[in-house]
């Protein structure tokens, strides 16, 4: 297990280093002068030069790369050019929206999709199965931003139960903050639940056909116990993989829904930073997202080991 973890961690480090090279090089070739963008077109050349020097843009490329990576390694993410605050603060503020949102969406989708998937598999070919499959088909087909707008029209404008969007901040208390995340989480959760329900159904059906399940039944175990002890436990491996992927995707990919609900999340920060050429923020956010994805994958791998304790030839 220790060798397995060590190798995984080494791979993780390599992945992140490669990601840092790619993001740095891509931003180097991206056209657009951040100083010009900040000062607008009336800026005089001496003003621009002063700002560029302030931003460190006048230094050679390798120096800037090493300065950036060195800073990251020592925990210093630098200062945002546009917002003039430490990038770490920005990322922390935005993660405080995005991470709970992604978590809530995954929680909702798993809570809905697991029972539905199991139900569909155990009633294969019957009404319940078709019902679940229809829900799942619909959930995948509906674009989530459009579904979000429908929810706002119905529950915010129609019934006045929720604000149409925005995030009051955790300082306003747990209740208001969580409440502002409910509609976006439902919106995001729908698609994920639809996908997950299908995966669950397929995984459960696969395991239902295995020899050991037949054996378990043959020795007289009840249907419920077979499902819990033998089927679900094995079906959980593909399900965990998908949930892990979905969570990693939601951390960076919720931007469209963040726009619909005007939530200040990580995806929107990245989008704004790109269009404002706030390069240090772009680089740092991409690295944070890469690190999160890699970390989630690592956790999923460890979970495999917990779910399936057979020794793995350390694959």
């Amino acid at each position: 297990m220790i060798g397995f973890l060590a190798r995984r961690l080494l791979g993780l480090g390599l992945t992140l280093w490669l990601a840092s090279l790619v993001v740095f090089v891509v931003l180097e070739v991206l056209p657009g002068d951040p100083a010009l963008l900040m000062l607008g077109v009336d800026a005089r050349p001496d003003t621009l030069a002063a700002l560029r020097a302030q931003m460190g843009l006048d230094q050679p490329v390798p120096v800037r790369y090493l300065g950036w990576i060195g800073g990251l390694l020592s925990g210093d993410m630098g200062i945002s050019h546009t917002y003039a605050v430490p990038v770490a603060d920005l990322v922390r503020d935005r993660l405080a929206v995005t991470a709970p949102l992604a978590g809530l969406a995954i929680l909702l989708s798993t809570a809905v999709a697991l029972p539905l998937g199991v139900l569909a598999a155990s009633r294969r070919g019957r009404v319940a199965d078709y019902g679940v499959m229809a829900f799942s088909q619909l959930g995948v087909a509906i674009p989530n931003f459009w579904f979000g707008i429908l929810l706002v029209l119905w529950l915010s404008i129609g019934l006045g139960w929720f604000e149409a969007g925005g995030f009051p901040g955790w300082s306003e208390g747990l209740g208001p903050a969580l409440k502002s995340l409910i509609l976006p989480a439902v919106t995001l959760g729908l698609t994920e639940a639809a996908i997950l329900a299908r995966i669950t159904r397929a995984a459960v059906l696969d395991t239902l056909g295995e020899d050991y399940v037949r054996t378990a039944r043959a020795k007289g175990l009840g249907a419920g116990a077979v499902m819990r002890r033998h089927v679900l436990r094995n079906a959980l491996i593909p399900i965990t993989t998908i949930v892990g992927l979905q969570f990693a995707f939601l951390l960076g990919g919720a931007i469209v829904v963040e726009n619909v609900f005007f939530l200040p999340g990580l995806g929107r920060l990245l989008f704004q930073a790109i269009s404002q050429r706030d390069l240090i923020v772009v680089k740092d956010v991409v690295m944070v997202l890469a690190a999160l994805v890699v970390a989630v994958n690592l956790i999923v791998d460890i979970l495999y080991a917990a779910i399936d304790p057979r020794p793995k030839g350390m694959a």
Binding site: I149, V152, S156, I157, G160, G165, V260, F262
Partner: peptide
């Protein structure tokens, strides 16, 4: 409040936010 999406702007006005 900062709302960049046109549809979201309309919704925020109509919901009274």
């Amino acid at each position: 409040r900062f709302i960049s999406d046109p549809a979201a702007q309309l919704n925020a006005m109509r919901s009274g936010d």
